[in-house]
């Protein structure tokens, strides 16, 4: 039961992020909503690696065979954080440029392309 509750948190975070991206009227807000969406993958990955009663996966001074959480997903999550930071930096730079060009952060004002 607790398990399902935890996984539904990941789904919930993904959905509110999506809702924000779809309805956003401010580019900074939009980029941050995208970041919220990506946060859902951190929650999901951490949950997948979780073992009840496991310790941190630092194998230097614990006896062999001790129950530990899965280190692989933690590595995945860290890599994902780096990848996401790159995307966010680029998108925020675009948002700054948009504000410089149009004086507005509303994606509706950035209408050069249609059809």
């Amino acid at each position: 039961m607790l398990n399902i509750f935890c996984y539904s948190i990941a789904a919930w975070v993904l959905l509110i992020g999506l809702y924000g991206v779809v309805t956003s009227r401010n580019l900074i807000h939009l980029v941050l909503c995208l970041s919220v969406m990506e946060t859902s993958t951190y929650v999901l990955l951490t949950l997948i690696g979780y073992r009840v009663g496991g310790t941190a996966p630092v194998f230097a001074d614990i006896p062999v065979g001790t129950k530990a959480v899965d280190p692989v997903v933690q590595a995945l999550m860290l890599t994902d954080v780096v990848v996401e930071a790159t995307v966010m930096a680029l998108l925020l730079a675009l948002a700054v440029q948009a504000h410089k060009r149009t004086g507005s952060l509303d994606p509706h004002d950035l209408r050069a392309l249609q059809g």
Partner: peptide, 24 residues
Amino acid sequence: EKGPLQGAMNFAVTNTAGAVFILT
């Protein structure tokens, strides 16, 4: 220019959203 900003923004946001689905 305004056009490339909008094009790159649309491109980046939709594809990043897609990437979140892939990772999930």
